[in-house]
Every structure is written in structure tokens, then in C-alpha cells.
Design a protein around this nucleic acid. Structure first.
Lengths: 118, 118
DNA sequence: CAACTATATAACTAAATGGTGCTACAATCA
DNA sequence: TGATTGTAGCACCATTTAGTTATATAGTTG
């Protein structure tokens, strides 16, 4: 793995490493939206949203499309959602494993809730 | 998507958003290594490697295992490689698409290299 | 043209972060 | 025990970055 490749991959991950940008991507999941719609949906500041949208566009994750006065942004890189899903699955798996490890130590309050040895 | 979930996902991406950490993960891909081995393989500073390893361990991506004087680190979260692969594929796909877009404009120096209309 | 709306940009602040040098600590060995 | 080695922690600096305020720019409408 050359440093250039590692740097490119890291740059991509960096774009997805901010909750605000992930929130914007989630909002755009239902379809293209203009900046005002994103503002209202997220509650973020206008300049802030504009900056994040620029970063997402430069990363090639969203596309920019002026329509009259407003500008519509749209997801063009579906891979970002695949990445989020992989991470989410991983996080869920960890919590489930932690739960399994703590389960034997937990006090069972109802025999019905856990089907097993009583 | 709750802010907590978005934050957790962003945190995971943030761990993978540094070339140094990706480099360490690449080195660990061939098997567990102690800190000294990672130092020599990456050429990074000792304190720096130690800090990055701590971050990777706290994120649950690698495990820490003291063996005598030295400490061995090992990949425990295979999902990180899956994520890197998805990103790499995405980057390759983009470059290929850019190449296809520029192809008609390129001067063909050899008819053999590109099979098509001469 | 003037007023207005929607978006982008610049300047700035505060906070986070990567890298480095030094130190502390633990395990091993003479 | 004292010396040595391997690793972690601390302090510091330089850089980056998210967020905000204010301003600039482009399209629209009167």
C-alpha cells in the first residue's frame, strides 16, 4: 500500500467522520434537497451547511445542481451508505456481544423474559 | 437516525481517517506484531505509534496482548478491511470513469493500444 | 434599477489532533 | 541490585477544523 493510496482512503473516511455531514447525507437519502430544506431539516447554521456541502461535493459524494435561485444537492455516491451500514452492523454486533458477556451475571427478574434454565 | 448513532458512526470513521493508522492496520494484516516491529515497518516515531495503537485499541479494532517485555497488537475487527476495500473500489471506479470521459479527447498514438475506430 | 431571497465565501475563535522529545514504568538479564 | 530494553504517558507545538458572524454574489421580482 503506497502512502498516496492510504492518504486517499483516509481522506474519504475523513469526510464521513463528522456527524453533521452524516446527518446531511441522511437527509439527502430521501431525494435531492436544496440548502434551505437541509437547513430546516437539520437545524444547522446556513454557512455551516454550505461548508459541509462543499466538502461532500468535492469528495464526489454529492452533486451540485443550481435550480433558479436555490441549489439542489443530490447523493451520487451510494457507497457511502454501504459504508455506514457496515459500521452500524459492526457496532450492533459489538453491543450484542457485550450483552452476551454480561448476561450470565444479570439477575433474572422474570422467567418468561429469557427462555432457558430456570 | 439519532444524533448518538450518527456520532458513533462518525467516531468509527474518524479512527480510520488517518493514514498513519491505516498504515499500522496494513502492517497488522499479516498477523500480530509488537510495537517495535510496527516501528521498524512503518518508520514512525515510538510515541506516535503508541498513541495510534491506543486509539485503535479503544475503538475495538485491535487487541492488546502483553508478552513478556513487549506488547503484541492484533486485528480483531475485520470490518475495517471491508470498509477500506469498499472505499478503494469506489476510488478506482471514479478514476476509471474519469478516464472514460477523457478518452475521446486523447490522441491515440497506437492503433493497437485501443481497439476501436481508427 | 431597486429590493429581496438563496447560497457561497471570508475572517475569526475555540477546540481537537498529529507529531515529537522527554520521562515514567515494567519486565528481563547480568 | 543495577543496567537495559520495550512501551506508555505527559507536555508542548503546529496544524486542522467545526461553528459563527458578517459580507459578497447570483437569481428573481416589483
Amino acid at each position: 500500500m503506497t502512502p498516496e493510496v492510504l492518504s486517499s482512503v483516509a481522506d474519504y473516511f475523513k469526510v464521513l467522520s463528522e456527524p453533521s455531514r452524516l446527518q446531511i447525507l441522511c437527509e439527502l437519502r430521501s431525494g435531492p434537497k436544496n440548502v434551505t430544506e437541509i437547513l430546516e431539516a437539520t437545524g444547522m447554521g446556513q454557512a455551516n451547511v454550505s461548508k459541509h456541502l462543499k466538502i461532500l461535493a468535492q469528495a464526489g459524494i454529492v452533486s451540485r445542481q443550481p435550480k433558479g435561485v436555490s441549489v439542489y444537492y443530490q447523493i451520487v455516491d451510494l457507497a457511502c451508505f454501504e459504508l455506514c451500514e457496515v459500521v452500524c452492523n459492526q457496532l450492533v454486533e459489538r453491543l450484542q456481544q457485550q450483552a452476551r458477556q454480561l448476561e450470565p451475571l444479570a439477575v433474572v427478574h422474570s422467567d418468561k423474559s429469557i427462555g432457558g434454565a430456570s
